[in-house]
Design a binder for these strands. Structure first.
Lengths: 140, 140
DNA sequence: TGCATTCCCTACTATTTCGATAGGGTTAAT
DNA sequence: ATTAACCCTATCGAAATAGTAGGGAATGCA
């Protein structure tokens, strides 16, 4: 299941993307519009900024804005930043690989192969959807 | 991420499937072979029995055995039993549907549509792999 | 300069989930 | 009767998740 952190993050990004002509958007505006606790959202946006997707402007008139072209921000990037690995077992993760402690040999592990397939098919979907696309669909 | 419960469950099923000519397999045998805590495995097998995949025989010489044809037990069934929904948001779950508390309208929700696609592609993979197939691959 | 606005950052807390254990009860073979 | 095996519920500790607290720093404007 998607964590609320991730879900809120996606919603916030969608909001920012849909209002990007307004200049920097304050946390408070997003929090109110999307019904997210201000403080919780603050930590989420911080993560997205450190992850290079958002940038911020301090002080009066400040807020958050997109650092990257929304056509180049993919759902897989966002989810990885906020939830970590997309794979269902660490031993098939591309970005967070780790050996499974309970598995003697990956090459003969049926779970490994199955989850590799799952990862690939999931990634195919998540990489094919950009923030720009999602934003468009959400405003319909 | 797959929980250990699910992972252990799959491993246990694979073991039982690979030794089904031996008659009922005691928990202790599986626990030792797959390096799983006996007691923990006990609760997992109980779930699988209640879910209709396994059956058990009590008393001396007892143990667990497959109730269904391993060609008819799919990975999606096992994972649903042990981990719950396959979908990443409740509002696109086929077997565990629930309205997202924070989403005003599913029809205009971009996350909903995206996660629907993810669910479909994941399910396609998980439904295509039966316990029999996994068991074969694991023994290679 | 002073003040309001807004982000920055760390730490903390409450709740839930996960992994595992405990322990006694029931069933069946010999 | 004894022993091997499953049955079932409760509980516990650790980790993850969701959310809170609170002060600090930068910026814009009067």
């Amino acid at each position: 299941m998607l964590s609320k952190k991730t879900k809120y993050g996606i919603k916030a990004l969608t909001y920012i993307c849909g209002h990007k002509s307004d200049g920097p958007i304050p946390i408070a505006t997003i929090a109110e519009a999307e019904n997210i606790s201000h403080k919780f959202l603050e930590t989420i946006l911080l993560t997205l900024r450190k992850g290079g997707i958002l940038a911020s402007k301090k002080g009066k008139g400040g807020g958050y804005y997109l650092l990257k072209d929304p056509n180049e921000v993919f759902m897989s990037d966002i989810i990885r930043l906020l939830s970590g690995p997309i794979a269902m077992v660490p031993c098939v993760s591309l970005n967070f690989y780790e050996k499974c402690d309970d598995c003697p040999d990956e090459n003969t592990c049926g779970i490994n192969r199955l989850m590799l397939e799952v990862r690939d098919s999931t990634l195919k979907v998540l990489k094919a959807k950009s923030l720009a696309q999602l934003t468009l669909e959400s405003s319909k």
